[in-house]
Write a protein that binds this DNA or RNA. Structure first.
Length: 375
RNA sequence: GGGUAGGUGGUCGAGUGGUUAAUGGCACCAGACUGUAAAUCUGGCGACGAGAGUCUACGUUGGUUCGAAUCCAACCCUGCCCA
């Protein structure tokens, strides 16, 4: 049976090995490497689908756990699926709820069969396991769905990480067995193993044996130093099949996105651009601009002089600072629009640099301009 | 004119003899944020000082007391009620 999602490699950067490709999905093609904005509750906070398209967002994320609690996957199914429900006709990826096993730490209990949650909304008991995560995600109807996993905290012991990783692999098998709508959505496996290379290798091997149509790396970018992040990323990414999409979960910052592409990653997602937008910060070609700070009170220039997004074409730092400081909704909207644009444009640039076999140079230029230190 | 309630740090407002440079909220100033429990959270917020610390502060002036934002007196100002 044909997988819902396939990967086509177009070009490999000769200096780094970064991959320029296309992911074919039921709702259209995705040019990679790609940054995917996160819309946990069936909306990328503060942005309309039209604005996302104008920002050249090719695919967005949504979340099993959150939609399971509210409004319920059956309601979304009744609405005609997530695409129709939220008026987004491009690809969607749903996360499995595995990240909530991590982020809702105190509110959940992990067992072999699955995870018992206390709802963060009302404290009621909820239950997710591989089979339920599949049922929910199939009802939502995303193009790419994720295996139910556990994302380990940093730091975790070897023993804890090993047990967790092995359970995640068992869960992945159960997800695969439970997954029915193979032609409608592709199920990706998630490599775990924390910060231990032998565990990463074992996880990758066991998951590859299960033959998923795509693979994710989970459990990094969870608070560790950048050096450790790069170490595990650069070790793990090459373990994954060449002919399938590689997805690094939860990244992130501009430098991490470039490093990910260099490591041979095709897809990344992150809440960061929209979250820091809500908290008053813009990502720009010259580094972070905390536009709510007093220094921008009389700065009548755009957020980023090199940006041509809707926000930068029309509004000044001083005005956006005023909107943020007066808690006007428009401030959050304008910053979100800009930040998502910034990252999608960054990835557009990365694609061109890969095609020109120039990604390594571009990274160095970018680091210098943005103000990052090389690790 | 009489009565009454009150005047506290940028602001609103606690405190009614000592552990009070003075609770809180807001405003303001920073920081954090990476598969979203996040339009959230953390810290700072009298002056000088790197710091220990020093100084100046609760309408004004005087007084009581070892010690006062807190008690007393006079005065100034504000709200409300009565003339």
């Amino acid at each position: 049976m044909k997988s819902a999602v396939t990967y086509e490699l177009l070009h490999k950067d000769k200096t780094t090995g970064a991959r320029r490709g296309v992911i074919h999905t039921p709702n259209g093609d995705i040019q990679t490497p790609v940054f995917m904005p996160v819309g946990t509750q069936a909306t990328v906070k503060a942005m309309t689908p039209e604005e996302l398209k104008e920002a050249n967002a090719q695919i967005i994320l949504s979340n099993t756990y959150h939609l399971f609690l509210r409004p319920g996957h059956n309601l979304v199914k009744e609405a005609g699926g997530l695409h129709k429900f939220m008026n987004w006709d491009r690809p969607i990826l749903t996360d499995s709820g595995g990240f909530q096993v991590f982020s809702l730490g105190a509110l959940r209990k992990i067992k072999e069969d699955g995870v018992e949650f206390r709802s963060h909304l009302d404290g009621s008991k909820k239950y997710l396991n591989p089979e339920i995560a599949m049922e929910v995600q199939e009802a939502l109807g995303a193009d790419i769905i994720m295996a139910f996993d556990e994302c380990c905290p940093y730091p975790s012991t070897y023993e804890y990480t090993k047990n967790s990783m092995e359970r995640t692999t068992r869960w992945a098998k159960r997800c695969k067995d439970a997954h029915k709508s193979i032609e409608k959505n592709a199920l990706f496996g998630i490599v775990q193993g924390g910060f231990f290379k032998d565990l990463r290798k074992k996880s990758a091997e066991d998951l590859i044996a299960l033959d998923f149509p795509g693979y994710a790396i989970g459990g990094i970018s969870v608070g560790e130093p950048k050096k450790e992040f790069l170490d595990i990323l650069n070790y793990t990414a090459p373990l994954l099949p060449e002919n399938k999409p590689r997805y690094l979960m939860g990244v992130g910052t501009p430098d991490y996105l470039i490093e990910s592409a260099i490591a041979g990653i095709d897809m990344c997602d992150c809440v960061l651009p929209t979250r820091i937008a809500r908290h008053g910060t813009a990502m720009t070609s010259r580094g972070k601009v905390v536009v709510r700070n007093a220094t921008y009170e009389r700065d009548f220039t755009p957020l980023d002089p090199e940006c041509d997004c809707y926000t930068c074409r029309n509004y000044t730092r001083a005005y956006i600072r005023h909107l943020i400081n007066t808690k006007e909704i428009l401030g959050v909207r304008l910053l979100s629009i800009h930040n998502v644009n910034f990252l999608t444009k960054l990835m557009d640039r990365v694609k061109i640099e890969i095609e020109n076999d120039n990604l390594a140079n571009f990274r160095d230029e970018f680091y210098q301009k943005y103000g990052y230190e090389k690790v």
